[in-house]
Computed example of a mutant assay.
Amino acid sequence: MADLSDMSKRPRFRFIINPTSGPSSRVDVAARIKLHLDHQKFDHDIVYTDYAGHAPELAREAAAQGYAVVVAVGGDGTVNEVAQGLLHTETALGIIPRGSGNGLARHLQVPLTVDAAIRFLNQGHRSQIDSGTINGRPFFTTAGIGFDAYISSVFAGSKKRGLQTYVELILKEVRNYRHLPVKAVINGKTIETELFVMAFANAAQYGNNAYIAPMANIRDGLLDVCLVRKLDMFKALQLSYAMLANKPASADSAEYFKTEGVTVQTDHEMMHHADGEYLGKAKEFEVRMVPQSLHVVAR
């Protein structure tokens, strides 16, 4: 771990703000940056995203220009996009959480309020974390196929956000979800089963303190795979309780594996997601870890 104060040049920060992220009670983030950032130690600029996919471009540009830190100001989607632009560079990701889930921020113990998150950046602690890919698409907290991807697709169209809405959608949709047969290869072992969900965790939680893989270590170079086979309502409630209690689910509800990668095949197209963003359907999936591929401002 290195501190920004160790750098020979005066560090520059770029803040990438998604103007559509955040609760209805708007906060003038630019004003809070002016108030709380340590301007004696750091230079900075602020840019705004204009469209989906703009943040990676702005992040890559900053990394190429030698910025020390690029700060994602937004929800999990914005964090994912900024992080994509910083992969395999020396520029660190910072986060000012402005979303409903804030999965990576929570895992890295970044404060969830704007002012505290900016003051946290002033401390300048850097470290490295792993990332993952699902069919080549980077993710930093979780990816998955099956029911959680289906919920991501429904959640994307919901006007309400937050944990309550997420739980309501799960309870509404779980009864009618169609389980599909899959063949997965994990650590050289082939598993054939009817699948409810297979979650690939780099970090411990989806967000909102809903823990899908409590044992996950974002720096160990391994995926924590949570496999949930065909599920009845009772087991679904057991699994939901375990997620909210930050405990592994019981053995009859879920199975856990640590691995460097997974391949999955199915005869039917299945939905998949990365960091909660619905990506579409596919019949084959390749999930891989990319160890120590992203610098972050974190303890």
Score class of each variant (00 low, 15 high):
L108M: 07
R106V: 07
E260I: 11
V225H: 03
E260R: 12
Y51F: 11
G146T: 01
Q292H: 10
H125E: 10
A216K: 07
G221T: 01
A105I: 04
G280F: 03
R12F: 11
L231Q: 04
R12P: 07
A105C: 10
F196A: 04
Q292K: 10
L112R: 03
L294Q: 03
I145F: 09
D43Y: 06
D3S: 11
K247S: 12
I46R: 05
F196V: 08
A143L: 03
V114W: 05
H179L: 00
G221H: 04
I212H: 03
K230E: 06
A143R: 02
F285N: 05
Q205M: 05
Q292W: 00
P56V: 06
I186P: 11
T259F: 13
D3W: 07
E277G: 07
T263I: 15
F147G: 10
S5N: 01
L237Q: 04
N80G: 00
I170G: 11
R175D: 14
A149R: 00
Y48L: 14
D3Q: 12
N122A: 02
T259N: 14
F285P: 14
T113I: 10
A52C: 12
A59K: 00
L163R: 14
Y177E: 04
K281D: 10
Q123H: 08
V47R: 08
D76V: 04
V73C: 15
S153Y: 08
E57R: 07
R32C: 14
E255V: 11
K283Q: 12
A282C: 01
F147M: 07
V114T: 15
A63N: 03
R137Y: 13
S8R: 03
V82T: 02
I218E: 06
Q265H: 13
A2Q: 15
K172P: 12
P181Y: 00
A68M: 10
R288S: 12
R299I: 13
L231M: 15
S250I: 14
D76F: 06
D50Y: 10
P11G: 08
V228W: 07
A245L: 08
F139P: 06
L223M: 09
T133M: 04
L86T: 05
N209W: 06
T266N: 07
E260Q: 14
R126E: 02
G85T: 01
I129V: 15
A68D: 08
E269Q: 10
Q292S: 08
I46T: 06
K230I: 02
L239R: 04
R299C: 11
V79D: 01
F234I: 11
H88N: 14
V228T: 07
A68Y: 08
K247V: 13
L239N: 01
H272R: 00
H44R: 05
P11N: 05
P138R: 01
